[in-house]
């Protein structure tokens, strides 16, 4: 189905009807009720196309895919897209709800002035575990060094997240460019690797739900969704700090309908809409008006709100330019080690 959509997108590029807004985002990432409300209010259609990694999205745009009005990439790749001059500057005059965006979050982002991007969700890479199988769990990345979990453990198959977790366990920045720190992280990962079943991005959700895996490294929203239906699954937030990622809304150069794209951004920044959205997708929206309206229970979930002291030690993954090669080298050594 997804491939079909991609094909349709490629073949119909440029032939989009004026009253259709083309959104390119992650799967299950907008509350469908909100989409209906927006369509009714603005007498338009919203067509949603999905991607499963920032790199895939980036590669598709680089390969010439056009016709999207609004995209939801993670902040680190937005830096790159700005460098590559792929994005339109936002017209703040059309975005009256920008005032709702949480000031604290903006401080962690490269585009803190929201020149090209507006924060949409805020999530973390954390740890989920089976309460029935893993006893005496410590809120630490060092849990991955435990040898009693019978290899029913996964780490993300994402070099920035996984090397980041190792760096954090050592108390280093997950955006470090220091060779010694990276070498230390590599050694930690090679040790952890002996205890894990595989590096995995797709299967951990179902795996921890079914009990195939006892301990998984994954994204907070996904794990929140598992916790809603399975009471045996718990989440721990490593106290050394976690990687935070912010997905933001951007309008690409050449978008056919930038005005409507601005309207949707503004609509999603509305406090009431934001609250409805969070409770559907399981990710925290950094929206001060929305956070006031959202249920207390949701906010108390550890997968949504992390302790303040951990939050203080958390970092957003940044694009490292040429120094990404250092991470690639460490990752290769870990995979081979």
């Amino acid at each position: 189905m997804k491939q079909l959509l991609v094909l349709l997108t490629l073949f119909t590029t440029g032939a989009f009807a004026a009253d259709t807004l083309h959104v390119f985002t992650w799967a299950d990432y907008i509350n469908p009720d909100l989409v209906k409300q927006f369509e009714k209010k603005h007498q338009c259609k919203v067509a949603i196309d999905t991607f499963d990694s920032n790199e895939a999205m980036y590669a598709r745009l680089k390969a010439g895919a056009s016709g999207y009005d609004l995209i939801f990439p993670s902040s680190y790749i937005i830096t790159l897209m700005v460098q590559q001059d792929m994005l339109q500057p936002l017209d703040h005059a059309q975005l009256s709800n920008l005032k709702n965006v949480e000031f604290e979050v903006l401080g962690k982002l490269a585009d803190s002035a929201m020149k090209h991007s507006v924060p949409y969700t805020f999530g973390y890479a954390v740890i989920a575990y089976r309460k029935d199988k893993v006893k005496d769990i410590e809120p630490s990345w060092k849990t991955f060094a435990r040898t009693d979990l019978k290899k029913r453990v996964t780490l993300l198959n994402d070099m920035r997240e996984t090397i980041g977790a190792a760096l954090k366990s050592l108390g280093y920045s997950l955006n470090t460019r220091d060779d010694k720190q990276l070498a230390a992280a590599r050694d930690v990962l090679i040790a952890w690797k002996k205890n894990i079943a595989k590096f995995d991005n797709e299967g951990y959700k179902a795996g921890v739900d079914s009990g195939e895996f006892n301990l998984v490294h994954g994204y907070s929203g996904d794990l929140w969704q598992v916790m809603q239906t399975n009471k045996k699954v718990g989440v721990i937030i490593p106290n050394e700090g976690v990687s935070a990622s912010c997905d933001e809304m951007v309008i690409p150069k050449g978008a056919p309908n930038p005005a409507l794209a601005h309207q949707l951004i503004n609509f999603l920044l509305d406090g009431k809409a934001s609250a409805e959205n969070m409770q559907n997708i399981g990710y925290l929206c950094p929206n001060s008006a929305g956070l006031k309206l959202v249920e207390k229970e949701f906010l108390n979930n550890p997968a949504v709100t992390i302790p303040a002291d951990v939050k203080a030690k958390s970092e957003v993954i940044q694009d490292l330019g040429d120094d990404l090669k250092k991470y690639t080298k460490v990752w290769d050594e870990v995979k081979a080690g």
Binding site: E55, A56, M159, L324, T328, W331, K335
Partner: peptide, 12 residues
């Protein structure tokens, strides 16, 4: 798998 990693993850 290495080719996939180079093409997707490493952007090389």
């Amino acid at each position: 798998n290495k080719i996939a990693q180079r093409a997707q993850g490493d952007r090389n």
